[in-house]
């Protein structure tokens, strides 16, 4: 089985500790807040100057002056704060935001990240991607394991322009949890029903299987399609 996008988001959410300050990128990471357990106090940061992002605003109850970094209308949690862009990027670049979960087009075995520009893309935009990748210690990627053509996104070397070199710590995908270590990629978890061989077949860079490698613990409702052997 692969995990659904919600399943990947759920799995990341399980690893965010109480007291963490988390920046969430576009793509699968936007689904994470739904799965943050209520008993853990976790503050979600939005680069436009918000710490303590709450759920989306209900239709009709949107505040015109309150959007997140993807311009969606949101609410704030108790204890939230608002501030200007310089302070917001002080939190990012200065390493005060403890975790960032972002999407990626490619990740290399050494932690190089490419998530801002496809070669040949006509109009480029970078936003805060580089500041996050350079500034935040626990940089996690949440993405599909292969691209929409079925080709691996975890490579020996990135082919797209880099967002930052050697910055990714962990990769959460629909079939695996992979840790990036100085000695290369370590396979920590595989989606239920798959094995290390199946993950390696969809990964260009070599994987070392952790001694305690196990099934990803994700509720059955987030199990997606069954992969052909």
């Amino acid at each position: 089985m692969t995990l659904t996008r919600e399943g990947v988001a759920y799995r990341v959410a399980c690893d965010l500790p109480e007291g963490s300050y988390v920046n969430l990128g576009v793509g699968i990471p936007t689904l994470i807040p739904t799965f943050l357990p209520a008993e853990k106090e976790i503050f979600v940061h939005s680069e436009n100057g918000i710490l303590g992002v709450g759920p989306y605003a209900e239709p009709g109850a949107e505040d015109p002056d309150l959007v997140n970094a993807t311009k969606e209308y949101i609410t704030l949690l108790k204890g939230a704060s608002v501030f200007d862009h310089a302070l917001s990027f002080t939190m990012i670049r200065g390493g005060h935001i403890t975790h960032s979960v972002i999407g990626a087009m490619e990740v290399a075995a050494n932690g190089d990240l490419a998530n801002w520009r496809v070669p040949g893309e006509k109009v480029p935009g970078v936003g805060g991607a580089m500041d996050l990748a350079f500034g935040i210690h626990n940089l996690y990627v949440a993405m599909t394991h292969v691209n929409n053509k079925g080709a691996p996104k975890i490579l020996n070397k990135c082919t797209f322009p880099l967002t930052a070199p050697r910055c990714v710590r962990r990769i959460y995908t629909d079939i695996a949890l992979i840790e990036i270590t100085p000695d290369g990629l370590v396979l920590r978890e595989v989606a239920p029903g798959l094995d290390a061989k199946a993950v390696q077949a969809k990964t260009e860079a070599p994987l070392r299987v952790a001694d305690d490698c196990r099934d990803m613990d994700v509720p059955a409702e987030f199990h997606g399609i069954r992969l052909r052997a």
Partner: peptide, 27 residues
């Protein structure tokens, strides 16, 4: 990069002649 953009503006307003940042190195 967005953080560099705001910091360049901050530097301009604060009378600072520039700054070094890790953001973007190698890209």
């Amino acid at each position: 990069p967005q953080g560099t953009l705001i910091e360049r503006i901050r530097a301009g307003g604060a009378g600072i002649g520039g700054f070094y940042t890790p953001t973007g190195v190698g890209t």
